[in-house]
């Protein structure tokens, strides 16, 4: 059972995640978009979307630190466990509250604003449900940890397992000892990763960082590849193709 939950399922989801993205990028560049609904409604989005996205960036940042940085490293630079704990709890709570409030606004908006609701696909709904579960479970763990009701040092459990998973030497027994909240959070997150390439979440991977350095105006020659349905005729392929 442990092997199934903490080895097979995660690797399956990871495989779907990677292959799914490659497939989607090759066959559906046209569908690769944020599918923004700002045109329909602005007032709620103006509040909810930045809250949600910046909260999410904070949460992702927290996960990178918590999951990928070994405890020995923070110890080495002289951050005490208590300092780390409070930093993580406060940062996690701030990001989590932004995230949850933002998401609540966005879901409320999606349901109540007519045009936005009718532009919502079934895939969107599934994605929202899974994402909501992941976020709420994560929030649950953070709150439990902050209130001191639960003493679990995930940096000696979940994090080590996660790194072992990424290194392809999984240690499922570490996960088996984790509290149920962490287990569920991790599992639902893997489901989300498996869904990812087939949802609008793909827009995460087109975060336009290149914008900062590229020249303002882009010049391009007419497309080299034939467009539309009129392919070059046989025998007329370009030199070198």
């Amino acid at each position: 059972m442990n092997t199934f939950l903490w080895v097979i399922v995660p690797y399956l989801c990871l495989a779907v995640f990677v292959v799914g993205h490659i497939w989607r990028y090759r066959y559906d560049k046209f569908g690769w978009t944020t599918r923004s609904s700002q045109l329909y409604e602005d007032r709620l989005l103006r509040l909810g979307s930045p809250l949600f996205h910046f909260g999410m960036l904070g949460a992702v940042g927290g996960h990178v630190v918590g999951l990928l940085l070994p405890q020995s490293w923070t110890d080495a630079v002289g951050i005490s466990d208590a300092a780390y704990h409070w930093g993580a709890v406060l940062g996690g709570l701030a990001a989590g509250v932004m995230l949850v409030v933002g998401m609540a606004i966005l879901i409320y908006r999606r349901r109540t604003v007519g045009p936005v609701f009718s532009a919502t696909t079934p895939m969107d709904k599934v994605m929202y449900a899974v994402l909501g579960v992941v976020v709420l479970l994560g929030m649950w763990n953070t709150v439990l940890g902050a209130s001191g009701l639960e003493h679990y040092n995930y940096r000696e459990g979940v994090s080590v397992w996660y790194r072992s998973f990424l290194a392809f030497q999984p240690q499922p027994e570490l996960m088996a000892e984790a509290p149920i909240g962490f287990k569920l959070h991790a599992l639902s997150a893997f489901v989300l990763f498996a869904l990812w390439p087939f949802t609008r979440l793909v827009h995460v991977f087109s975060a336009p960082v290149g914008y900062v350095t590229r020249p303002y105006i882009v010049y391009r020659s007419r497309d080299e590849r034939p467009l539309g349905n009129a392919a070059p005729r046989r025998g007329w392929d370009r030199v070198g193709s």
Binding site: K29, F30, W32, T33, T34, R35, S36, Q38, L39, H203, S206, P208, I217, V218, Y219, R220, S221, R222
Partner: peptide, 21 residues
């Protein structure tokens, strides 16, 4: 969004647009 070198027509590459608005 790019400007074609040959004739200056400004076009949106539908495969690259990500809907940032």
């Amino acid at each position: 969004i790019y400007k074609r070198e040959e004739d200056g027509i400004v076009l949106v590459d539908q495969d690259r647009c990500r809907g940032w608005r």
